[in-house]
């Protein structure tokens, strides 16, 4: 024990209890009834809400991934190539964009996205890979061997 002076010998009080309670009230502010006004009742609600939030944090990511996949399948199919072929082609060309950025491009820069699709088709044809019958490039892209 380190007691450098007599005043440190007493029990040192922590922060006032009200701050801990205010945190619970703040988190439960959007509830109704005693769960927002009483600390003891609100404790359980706070605990449960934090558990739900933890699960939702993971589910939100999965939901967005599903939405991005749906959008990208639609966007790729507009240019006549299934998304899995486009994704494969982009990886092979070392264009490492993730799904979120790709779907942003598909919505706000459709011509860029069309370019990705054409390049991807051409690259896979050059490498001798098979594409679905409606996915072959109608106008061949001259890549000059740079992909």
């Amino acid at each position: 024990m380190v007691q450098l002076s007599a005043c440190l010998l007493r029990k040192i009080p922590g922060p006032p209890r009200i701050y801990k309670r205010l945190q619970t009230f703040r988190l439960n502010a959007r509830y109704e009834g005693r769960s927002r006004n009483c600390y003891v009742v609100g404790q359980g609600y706070q605990l449960k809400s934090m558990q739900y939030t933890r699960v939702a944090r993971k589910n939100k990511v999965l939901d967005f991934k599903e939405l991005y996949n749906l959008r990208l399948e639609a966007a790729a199919e507009e240019h006549g190539i299934p998304f899995r072929y486009l994704w494969d082609g982009l990886r092979r060309m070392n264009i490492l964009l993730n799904r979120k950025v790709l779907q942003d491009i598909a919505i706000y820069e459709p011509r860029t996205f069309a370019g990705f699709c054409e390049l991807s088709k051409q690259h896979q044809v050059d490498q001798g890979l098979n594409l679905p019958p409606h996915s072959y490039p109608k106008i061949p892209v001259n890549t000059k061997g740079m992909l």
């Binding site: 939405l67 749906l70 639609a74 919505i107």
Partner: peptide, 14 residues
């Protein structure tokens, strides 16, 4: 069903 639901558009949202 894809066309009726709008799943053929990149702006799709449920």
């Amino acid at each position: 069903c894809l066309f009726l639901e709008g799943k053929h558009k990149p702006i799709y949202h449920p």
